[in-house]
Write a protein that binds this DNA or RNA. Structure first.
Length: 139
DNA sequence: GCCAACGTTGGC
DNA sequence: GCCAACGTTGGC
């Protein structure tokens, strides 16, 4: 299983919106960046991801799971753009902020720190475990 | 609101 | 195929 990180502005689509979709999940549409899309095409059903609030919050708030492989993005006529579906698994007991991540030597290589603009990012297993620890939830 | 970083576009 | 110009993102 691989680990990922999904970024969204909570004003547009936040954790609460994701939770409201329940186990059916929701397609992660609107991505118009090749790197982010390629990450989604590499995902398998059951892969786990962090849900990060950009712009407002600046923190990882919960864990999601990929529940459908990449398929055409329903919000685009351009067949180049594909996306997966994800569903909320559980919230963190304590959100993990960008500041906390930056301050943790074990997390200095996270893509979130190195390339904060990429909206769908890979996360290593070590990073996954560490962030879950900080978030007060099991990995 | 600013600005640095990054990605994309398009003229040559 | 290069690179300058431009647009967008997102932390600060």
């Amino acid at each position: 299983m691989a680990y990922w990180l999904f970024k969204s502005e909570p004003d547009t689509w936040g954790w609460d919106d994701q939770v409201a979709k329940g186990d059916a999940g929701q397609e992660w549409d609107g991505v118009r960046n090749y790197q982010a899309r390629n990450n989604m095409k590499a995902m398998q059903v059951g892969d786990r991801g962090f849900f990060y609030h950009s712009q407002k919050g600046l923190e990882i708030v919960g864990i999601v799971e990929v529940c459908a492989l990449a398929h055409p993005d329903s919000t685009s006529d351009d067949p180049r753009w594909e996306c997966v579906d994800i569903r909320a698994v559980r919230p963190f007991a304590r959100p993990v902020s960008m500041a906390e991540i930056k301050a943790d030597p074990a997390l200095s290589e996270m893509v979130l720190v190195k390339n904060s603009r990429l909206s769908v990012q890979p996360v290593t297993e070590d990073q996954w475990r560490r962030v879950c620890e900080l978030g007060g939830t099991e990995a």
